[in-house]
């Protein structure tokens, strides 16, 4: 068991190492971002100063010879390998320093942590609701397979599943703000001066529509997968045994079907994390929710590389970690894997 966990963690670390490399080079192949500073009022000297300030004057890596395992010698081309952008990137990372935003001049790490919580709140609430409701709907639909209930759940799920995220968001925003008087966007009412519980309530009303969008986008998929898995599980011999044992419908679903059917859901939720991020970008943009998604959207528009680089790193690491958690959860749920 411990060996298994260590192995999974080992793979996760390796993946993160690759992510670090990719993340670094991805943002260098686009060239020097100061090229884009086209404002005629900027003198060459100012641009040079900016380049020095952000370390862009240094070579990216000392040279590609370094990466050649046969000739591997750090000093292959006479540049101090510790005076490169790559070395700075790594040493800064170790210090938890993700650089400074081109746009707001604030430290990226600080900016991202602040926004990360908002995104986690949104994704967390949306995913948890989608998972719970999706699983229950799928379970009920499978139990009542080929009834009106089943067909309505099926049609509803397919419909919300096929709706474009941003379109659904805009629709809900229009409908919610028009008829229910819900806020148009943001995380809280600016300048309201609310504190304590009142402020939480205010945040809650702002969270309502984006969470609803998030839930609707994912609920269909979870419901459909749960339904088909439970249908499979219900045809298993051990379910017949459970019926023969005189267990009630509720007990059979809860004690025998659910746990077996949870296995694929755990996998899907983990695999979905990438799409969750994509969903977050769209939803946060529509609802001006100050999370990572909106940050990425804005940073792309502003060519704010340090922010983008930091956000990508953060997202990649969280997806990898979430997959590790899903893997471990799977192991916990299925004794055949755990004890193998």
């Amino acid at each position: 068991m411990t060996k298994l966990i260590l192995r999974k963690l080992g793979w996760a670390l390796l993946t993160i190492a690759f992510v670090l490399l990719l993340n670094f080079f991805l943002f260098r192949v686009m060239g020097d971002p100061t090229r884009l500073l086209k404002d005629p009022r900027l003198s060459q000297a100012t641009i040079e100063a900016i380049r020095v300030r952000f370390g862009l004057d240094k070579p990216v890596i000392n040279c590609f010879e370094t990466l050649n395992p046969i000739k591997a010698s750090l000093n292959a081309c006479g540049v101090n390998p510790f005076n490169t952008q790559f070395a700075a990137y790594l040493s800064n990372l170790l210090k938890g320093d993700l650089g400074v935003s081109f746009h707001s001049q604030r430290p990226v790490a600080e900016l991202l942590t602040e926004r990360l919580w908002n995104t986690l709140l949104l994704i967390g609430a949306g995913q948890i609701l989608a998972i719970i409701i999706g699983i229950i709907l799928g379970l009920v639909a499978a139990w009542k397979a080929r009834t009106v209930l089943d067909y309505s759940a099926l049609v509803g799920s397919l419909t919300v599943w096929s709706l474009p995220t941003f379109w659904l968001g805009i629709l809900l925003l229009f409908w919610g703000s028009n008829y229910l008087g819900l806020p148009l966007g943001g995380k809280e009412t600016i300048g309201s001066g609310l504190t304590g519980l009142k402020r939480l309530g205010d945040i809650g009303t702002h969270l309502l529509l984006p969470t609803l969008t998030f839930t609707l986008v994912f609920i269909g998929e979870y419901m459909l997968i749960m339904r088909s898995t439970v249908l499979d599980v219900l045809s298993e011999d051990y379910i017949l045994t459970a019926k023969a044992k005189g267990l009630s419908t509720f007990q059979i679903l809860k004690d025998h079907a659910l746990r077996n059917a949870m296995l694929p859901i755990v996998t899907i939720v983990a695999l979905n994390l990438g799409f969750t991020v994509a969903g977050a970008i769209q939803i946060e943009t529509v609802f001006s929710w100050p999370g990572l998604g909106l940050t990425i959207f804005e940073a792309v528009g502003r060519r704010d590389y340090p922010v983008l680089q930091g956000a990508f790193l953060l997202l990649a690491v969280s997806v990898v970690l979430a997959n590790v958690i899903a893997d471990l959860l799977y192991t916990f749920l299925d004794p055949r894997v755990r004890l193998a």
């Binding site: 011999d237 017949l240 045994t241 023969a244 077996n260 299925d334 055949r336």
Partner: peptide, 25 residues
């Protein structure tokens, strides 16, 4: 009927290989 099952009438299924739930002891 449910309250009679297993209390009065028990069944051992054909192919008990799969008749036990794999995720419960």
């Amino acid at each position: 009927m449910r309250s009679l099952r297993w209390q009065d009438l028990a069944i051992i299924f054909q192919g008990a290989m799969n008749a036990l739930n794999p995720v419960k002891t």
